[in-house]
């Protein structure tokens, strides 16, 4: 790690509190942070999926995971542009992606979890996709036109993503004893991160529909698990850490070190 990176880390200001109280007066900062959360989920999950490049179990999955990664990173870029515009501080999408430190990232803990084996990656992806698609469908009706435009585009991609992760969940769950065991283990490990998916209220300026999405998510998950011969883990405890508030597991720091090393070492580098 370069000295430049350490200095930058040390000089980061303390993160502002995440938008919490519903009904509180919506501030520009709250809108910025909310958009950032949506963007960071995609950037971090996209980066995680890109780590499979050259390591996927079969060629078709090599293509699929890289394609989904590309979609998510592209979606993140669009959202970073909206967030930067909302913040109005002249930061670019690249600055938001590459020049923030772990405490300033607003992604949920689920997406930063390391890839594990293929079953682990698929379960992580399925939980994200099952949450993401109904959310995007609701955002298509947002009064915030640019966000609705983003959602209309992202929806089309998210349908493919869910079809992919859902299809694999069924194949792995209903496959061999070993594939079922690994998929169940992944589910048992990842389930504790799911309460965070519904912890942050949607801002009224962002979406007109309030959270009917949790029921939708539970329904998608239950149906898929029973079809895949998998067992829903016990109710997850309230999370101690909060990705949306900038409180991350140690995994995010390692991911950022790798993802940001170029811009941190050679600020403004282009090709």
């Amino acid at each position: 790690m370069s000295a430049g990176l350490l200095e930058t880390v040390a000089s980061q200001p303390a993160p502002a509190p995440a938008p919490e109280a519903s009904g509180a007066l919506e501030t520009q900062r709250a809108r910025f942070e909310w958009l950032l959360g949506l963007a960071d989920d995609r950037l971090i999950l996209g980066h995680r999926l890109s780590e499979w490049c050259g390591h996927a179990p079969i060629l078709e999955e090599e293509l699929a995971l890289a394609n989904i990664a590309l979609d998510l990173i592209g979606q993140a870029q669009m959202l970073f542009e909206l967030a930067a515009e909302t913040e109005g501080a002249g930061r670019s999408a690249d600055a938001l992606a590459f020049l923030r430190d772990s405490r300033d990232f607003r992604n949920m803990l689920l997406v930063e979890q390391p890839n594990g084996d293929f079953a682990f990656t698929i379960v992580r992806q399925f939980l994200f996709d099952a949450w993401d698609l109904p959310q995007l469908e609701a955002l298509c009706a947002s009064r915030y036109k640019d966000l609705a435009g983003f959602a209309a585009k992202a929806c089309k991609e998210a349908r493919y993503h869910l079809r992919h992760s859902h299809g694999w969940l069924l194949r792995l769950g209903g496959g061999t004893q070993e594939s079922n065991r690994r998929t169940q283990a992944a589910l048992d490990e990842l389930w504790r991160f799911t309460p965070e998916l519904f912890l942050t209220p949607v801002l009224p300026s962002m979406s007109s529909t309030s959270d009917a999405s949790e029921a939708h998510f539970q329904e998608t998950v239950r149906a898929a698990l029973s079809e895949a011969d998998l067992t829903l883990p016990d109710a997850a405890p309230f999370p101690a850490l909060r990705g949306r508030a900038g409180l991350h597991s140690e995994h995010l720091g390692h991911l950022l070190a790798e993802m940001q090393v170029l811009q941190r070492s050679y600020p403004g580098a282009k090709w």
Binding site: E60, L63, A64, N67, L70, D71, R163
Partner: peptide, 9 residues
Amino acid sequence: QVSAFGSTA
């Protein structure tokens, strides 16, 4: 269909 994802998005 062999794969829902191909050489490009």
